[in-house]
Design a protein around this nucleic acid. Sequence first.
DNA 1: AAAGGCGCCAACCGCCAACTC
DNA 2: TGAGTTGGCGGTTGGCGCCTT
Length: 275
Amino acid sequence: MGMEGRRDLGMVMRKGPWTAEEDEILMDYVAKYGPRDWSSIRSKGLLPRTGKSCRLRWVNKLKPDLKTGCKFSAEEERIVIELQARFGNKWARIATYLQGRTDNDVKNFWSTRQKRLARILQTPTTTTTMTATQRNHGKSPVCHEMPALEVVQLPDLEPGLPVLEPINADENLCFDDPMKFLPSFPQLLQPLEMEFPQLAENQDLIAGLDCDMSFSNLFGNQRGLESGAGQQFPFEVPFFGPEEEVQNCRTKRGGGDLGTPDSFFDDFPADMFEW
DNA sequence: AAAGGCGCCAACCGCCAACTC
DNA sequence: TGAGTTGGCGGTTGGCGCCTT
């Protein structure tokens, strides 16, 4: 990315990566005047950046409570998948449902996911005649033949179900109780079934997953898996399917307690909640 | 050790609606 | 009321680091 500037209002406008000094100036500005009137940062001569650039920097990197450097959790993945199905590529809107995530975060997550899916779907179909173990020698992720995921028609949400409320909206920034909405919205918690219709081979795939339905764990960091680097999520992904499936899941996993919100969050590493 | 592939992500661009004068 | 400006948004690009071959 070039660092070339362009002249604007007699000032050589900077582009490219922000320096710590620029960040500090921008933070000072927001502390003084609030996150508004971005173009006045330039007109006041504080920074040789466009208002748009300042706003973007603030929104994506400097705003408090951002989850920077933290991968999307399985729950966040579920939410994005569900909401993308509902809203389409309305990243800003989707981001309002994810505390600490920006539209750019969601967009980047989705873009990476799409690339990964596209690559997976280009896998020669002849490989589907082999077992996962045969194909992978037990190292890479199971990659059964799949339908064209992006043309799968998702079922309409049932009208009677609770409405998922944005949690990242200005008037509701507090994310003190995520369990308010997640368990009451079962669609969010079963992305695998959304992406893999009830086909026999998909049931086989689900069964082979040992209940871990995270996209990242399904397709995720293939290199990491292949190299034996382990699962992307070091914690158990809670499963909120029908009760009998929960029971099966518990059995498979040796009887872990998935039943309560508290135990759910106990499964996450503590530093995940620092934000 | 080097090259290539890939994931991640910061930041830019263009479009458009809302706002201001 | 219309032109100019600003801000919001989605799409895209390109750099960097890690991993595999």
